[in-house]
Amino acid sequence: MSTATLTTKGQITIPAEVRKAMSVSQGDRVEFVEIEPGKFLLCAATRSMTELKGRFGKPDRPVSVEEMNEAIGQAASGK
Rank of each mutant, 00 (worst) to 15 (best):
R29E: 11
E34R: 11
S77A: 15
S25I: 00
T3G: 08
T8K: 12
E51M: 01
A71D: 12
R61D: 05
A45K: 13
G78R: 03
G54T: 02
S77Q: 14
E34G: 05
A21Q: 14
Q11M: 15
T46F: 02
G73M: 10
G57Q: 01
A76P: 00
F40E: 09
P62Y: 02
I72M: 07
V65G: 00
V18Q: 07
G57I: 03
A76I: 10
E67P: 02
V65T: 08
C43G: 05
A76C: 06
L52S: 14
A16C: 02
D28E: 06
K9I: 00
I12C: 11
V63T: 11
S25N: 07
I12S: 11
V63P: 00
T8E: 12
S77G: 09
V30H: 02
P59E: 00
E17L: 12
F40P: 08
C43W: 07
K20M: 08
I14H: 01
K58S: 13
Q74R: 15
A4G: 06
G38R: 07
D28F: 04
P15L: 01
M22F: 05
Q74V: 13
A75V: 12
V63S: 03
A45Q: 11
G78C: 04
K9S: 12
Q74I: 14
V63E: 04
E36Y: 10
V24D: 03
P15M: 02
E31N: 14
V63L: 10
E70Y: 07
R55P: 02
V24M: 05
E51R: 02
E51Q: 03
V65D: 08
M68L: 15
T8C: 00
P62C: 00
K20V: 09
T5P: 01
P37M: 03
G54N: 02
R19W: 01
T7E: 09
A71K: 14
E34D: 06
G10R: 05
E70H: 08
E36W: 08
V65I: 11
R55N: 09
I12A: 09
V18G: 04
V63W: 03
N69I: 13
A45N: 15
P62I: 03
S64T: 15
A45F: 11
A75G: 04
